[in-house]
Design a protein around this nucleic acid. Sequence first.
DNA 1: TTGTATGCGTTATCAA
DNA 2: TTGATAACGCATACAA
Lengths: 361, 361
Amino acid sequence: MAKPSSKPAAKSAPRREPAGVQAKPTINDIARLSGVSKKTVSRVINNSPLLNEETRERVEQVIRETGYVPNPQARALALGRNFLIGLIHDNPNAQMILNMQQGILEALRDTDFELVVRPVDRGSATMLDDVRSFLTRQRLYGVVILPPISENSQLAALCNEIGCRYVRMGSAILDDADHMVASNDRDAVAEATRYLISQGHTRIGLVAGPHGFRSARERREGFEAALAEAGIKLPRSLVADGQYTFESGISATDSLLDLSPRPTAIFACNDEMAAGVLFAARERGLAVPDDLSIVGFDDTPIAARVWPPLTTVRWPIVAMGRSAALKLISGTIAHAEDVTEPSLFISTLIRRGSVAPPRKD
Amino acid sequence: MAKPSSKPAAKSAPRREPAGVQAKPTINDIARLSGVSKKTVSRVINNSPLLNEETRERVEQVIRETGYVPNPQARALALGRNFLIGLIHDNPNAQMILNMQQGILEALRDTDFELVVRPVDRGSATMLDDVRSFLTRQRLYGVVILPPISENSQLAALCNEIGCRYVRMGSAILDDADHMVASNDRDAVAEATRYLISQGHTRIGLVAGPHGFRSARERREGFEAALAEAGIKLPRSLVADGQYTFESGISATDSLLDLSPRPTAIFACNDEMAAGVLFAARERGLAVPDDLSIVGFDDTPIAARVWPPLTTVRWPIVAMGRSAALKLISGTIAHAEDVTEPSLFISTLIRRGSVAPPRKD
DNA sequence: TTGTATGCGTTATCAA
DNA sequence: TTGATAACGCATACAA
């Protein structure tokens, strides 16, 4: 005999496990215990259609009894891809990212997928290379890309090139249905603006979002459309630039409130800036909503926590996150063939105390 | 010859890569190109000390030229553990989780580690089993556990049993230095309370945190200690229970402000509740800070965005996240032997507009 | 419908 | 200090 062959078929390589940890069963154990080959067990695991029902049940029985779970690392190596969903973002809005995570995780619950988080720097020259190396090295199953970086179509092209599934999230439909979940920002802002108009406001200021953000454009256009529709002129002076930050909301408001006559209402393109508008109004001793009505966008927690609470636009971000993840993994779910995840999500106006008719003077 | 051996040493298995993707070089390619064995390349990758300097440099040269990166999936399989850091939390505070993520990701930048997020349900009966299967299946390198679930010592015991590195985060030192990053909540609250006392307040209400939260206990005890120190009695009626939520802050305040005489200041055990205190005061038409001074805890964004901005306690959460991650991976970093990450982090009082001396009546 | 042989890319063992 | 060879656990091609 060439080889020692001391242990004929023991197959009990103990490995250096910490004390108290029993070695987890592998596919080999299941195969042996149920008297079939590894391949058959593999077929059971992967829901292969060509399998004798009886065999399947026997194997599944053993799997249940042993508590066997396939090793994700081994699967990843053999398949050439991981069971990981990536979340790529460069967004300063903590609440949005976290809500998105929540939605994605809801969809991933009870699946084999895990969520890995990847913030990127939009400004960096190496951003695309960073993402490329991240995707190719980790061989993610798919990624969800959050705005504003989701508006970068080079990123989507990169995913296609690499062969990584992706779903973009944004304020307009920038991609086909399989790769996009979008909110209808333009319509939602138009509705909010119409509401201000219906309250009697005609001098309405806009705190716009930063240049280069698609959401900023959509929201601004919705605002302008509603005014035009009502025959209200929008002088350039009533539009102030913002950066989606609280501080930029304050300074934008300062310039708007310096106007004479000053606006009786301000629409801010997100809640952070709307909070800044409110803050700036208070600093000047203005009463909200009597001296100034305010509407925001996002319905982040801050909108309901300031005084008075802000009228704002709520978009179903958790549902969008869930849908984005489902789009990614739908191929792996048995009963998902017939269900089509929506791509366009409807926002709604939340009316709170920050809007009232303008004061008669 | 038994085997066909059609391709002697080509080793160019094309695999089904998407068009345009060149196959990534493997350890075999590097070994061949640099004329050494796989094992030697492996030694280079893993910084093995027993290696000829000359050999090392030659291999490293080839690695640079080819842009080779080790396949994480293969390493995971061979090593029996992944290059993933988990973040386990059950916390309702979005900003804290996100700041923590930021800190961890800063530490993980330029390493081979990725961050996977895992929310758990503290109330669930299967929580421990869920975490166990998560940890054993994914074979995480280590986990960071956030409060309040980090206070559950069964979780730490589970990590030890499984052999998974962990670092807990909390409001008191619950574990040894290698497994803990803590803030000094008690001292910080005592300081904040002393500040209120120094402004002339003696009737100070407390909106406490929920029972069972260590942070709630620490903060309450710090509050009580500062009062006792100053010889101020704390009637039971001046303590209202809260749940760390905005709404609970409102209702707790309602009960406190119904007292007669009512408190001239309120310390809320977190900013969410402090925002609720402010909101409730406004609802009653009270002026803050003239009629009522308010102090919060956390320095979340909302603290600076309400009017008046809230005096609060800031704890260095991003730094704590970074430190927690560094504690986990310090074994893998070359120069980290001598640097010891701190375990106790100091919070600071941030003075804003919500505190003033009590009105003389 | 099932099994055999082989590959995935890395690390570990042990001998040279 | 290095290298040949065997794991690691699962999936696929192809044969039975």
